[in-house]
Write a protein that binds this DNA or RNA. Structure first.
Length: 280
DNA sequence: ATGTCGTGAAAGTCACGA
């Protein structure tokens, strides 16, 4: 089974490109971020024609996430426990929730499509919101994994954090000045790993970015960031047989500024499968 | 030139977010 995550930066502006890629690459499940549309505006027909069912979480032109699957999709959730809200110019505990998370189960694998808040600036209220959001995600996921220790779960999406200096090739992103590389953001990402999640792509694709700003020739100069990840529970990580970062998708007509990140799961490798012939 | 995108509202350009 092939699972991918892609910040598509408007699904309506790129639906043809996305569906073409899905079919060409034989992707079974795609987690999308920044669909930038309301649920009722999502281009379901194009995905259905290609054999995919899609669940969406979009409220307006901002943010928005979705999961497309050609292997079934069930148990859809559109928030996680403790997820904070945000409203510019306001503070407090009861702010509106943004459409930044959707989870669903496809072929027995729990997949979350996540669009972590950008942060905007180190002194911006959005930055504190980002850290709160990540801490709630960690707590919710840790509780879920404790209650479902044998279940494969993947947190996929745009984390808006470059976890190491090697993940930052953009000369304008500077520690102490910029979001995405601050110690607190990196600590929040590390806390996800410490809670029992594994970056299943990095060991297989140790170098390369997943995002390049549209401005300033960032892609031709290869001045990008690695900020899109697939983090898996141990049961998920044990299934991973391969991974890829589809850099080619940053090229051509009307690309997103992010590219797809892909993993292949070997569902036949279940060690408890007594029917599997033993080979010595 | 924050040198590019995408969206919506108002409008044939701007504000916002990234």
């Amino acid at each position: 089974m092939r699972i991918a995550t892609w910040n598509v930066n408007s699904v309506r502006a790129r639906v043809g490109r996305i569906v073409d890629w899905l079919g060409r690459e034989e992707v079974d499940v795609l987690a999308m971020q920044e669909i930038k549309c309301k649920d009722e505006q999502f281009p379901h027909a194009e995905f259905e024609a290609a054999g995919y069912e899609v669940v969406t979480h979009g409220l307006n032109q901002w943010n928005g996430v979705a999961i497309a699957s050609r292997v079934g999709i069930e148990d859809v959730a559109r928030t996680f426990d403790g997820m904070p809200g945000f409203l510019k110019g306001h503070e407090g505990p009861d702010l509106p929730l943004e459409p930044r998370a959707i989870g669903a189960t496809a072929n027995g694998v729990r997949v979350w499509s996540l669009y972590v808040p950008n942060g905007r600036g180190l002194d911006d209220p959005h930055y504190a919101y980002k850290l709160d959001w990540l801490e709630a995600l960690r707590g919710s996921t840790a509780a879920w994994m404790a209650a479902n220790p044998d279940a494969p779960i993947a947190l996929t999406g745009d984390f808006n954090i470059a976890p190491t200096d090697a993940d930052n090739g953009d000369p304008t992103i500077i520690e102490g000045v910029s979001t995405h590389v601050s110690p607190a953001e990196r600590a929040a990402f590390q806390a996800l790993l410490d809670s029992g999640l594994t970056d299943v792509v990095r060991p297989r694709i140790p170098e390369g970015f997943t995002y390049w700003d549209y401005k300033q020739l960032r892609f031709p100069r290869n001045e990008g960031l690695r900020i899109d990840f697939i983090l898996g529970s141990k049961p998920f990580a044990d299934l991973v047989a391969g991974a890829g970062i589809h850099r080619e998708e940053r090229k051509g007509d009307a690309p997103s500024d992010h590219v797809p990140v892909v993993v292949d799961l070997d569902l036949s490798a279940d060690e408890d499968d007594d029917d599997r012939p033993m080979i010595f």
